[in-house]
């Protein structure tokens, strides 16, 4: 039952740029993005749909690139982390994540940013519950998540032109209570 895999070709539209690629038909979008297109910004932590690190947007919808054959991605609009900034300007999500320390090792961040982007496009002013739900398929082992939620709220505000900022205690210590007698 040893099947020989066939090779196929496709023109993938990634971040509005066409990539003509040849790849074995059993390769996932994750593999083709990283290995054929050189777009290594998309990460992987399980390859089984369990961590969200590989998330990209296909036609605006977040998908797990480890569970989608690249062969199914032709003629569709693929967005990856590399396309989030415009020229040399960061997307508000990127600014907020960088400035709030919402990224530590940074490995889970590309996937999370793509999910957050999809959310903000659907819902410019998401509730905390919506942010948590939207990002809930993405595991992070460094941050403890709360700072990420806050960063998304901050980015949403920036994108709306609202000057809301995370509270001071997100940047500094909560003020210490007066020493007891």
């Amino acid at each position: 039952m040893k099947a020989r895999s066939t090779t196929t070709t496709a023109v993938l539209k990634i971040n509005d740029e066409d990539h003509a690629v040849a790849f074995p038909v059993h390769h996932t979008l994750l593999e083709v993005l990283r290995e054929e297109c050189g777009l290594t910004g998309t990460k992987h932590g399980c390859e089984l749909g369990e961590c969200g690190a590989c998330a990209v947007l296909v036609d605006g919808e977040p998908v797990l690139s480890c569970l989608m054959l690249a062969a199914e991605a032709g003629d569709r609009n693929i967005e990856t982390i590399e396309g989030l900034q415009r020229n040399n300007d960061l997307h508000p999500l990127q600014t907020a994540f960088a400035d709030l320390g919402a990224t530590q090792c940074g490995y889970c961040i590309p996937g999370i940013l793509m999910l957050a982007k999809a959310l903000l496009e659907r819902e410019p002013d998401p509730s905390e519950g919506q942010i948590r739900e939207a990002l809930s398929g993405n595991l992070c082992r460094c941050t403890g998540y709360n700072r990420i939620v806050l960063a998304v709220q901050w980015a949403a505000a920036m994108a709306r032109g609202d000057d809301w900022r995370p509270p001071p205690e997100a940047f500094h210590s909560t003020s210490l209570p007066q020493a007891s007698a």
Partner: peptide
């Protein structure tokens, strides 16, 4: 990276074709 084993992959546009393909072994 955990990858798929090599396969032959088809994505026909007609349901009948899908059904017909399913009649073979190991599909």
């Amino acid at each position: 990276m955990l990858r798929l084993p090599p396969i032959d992959y088809r994505s026909p546009q007609r349901l009948e074709e899908v059904i017909a393909t399913l009649a073979s072994e190991n599909v």
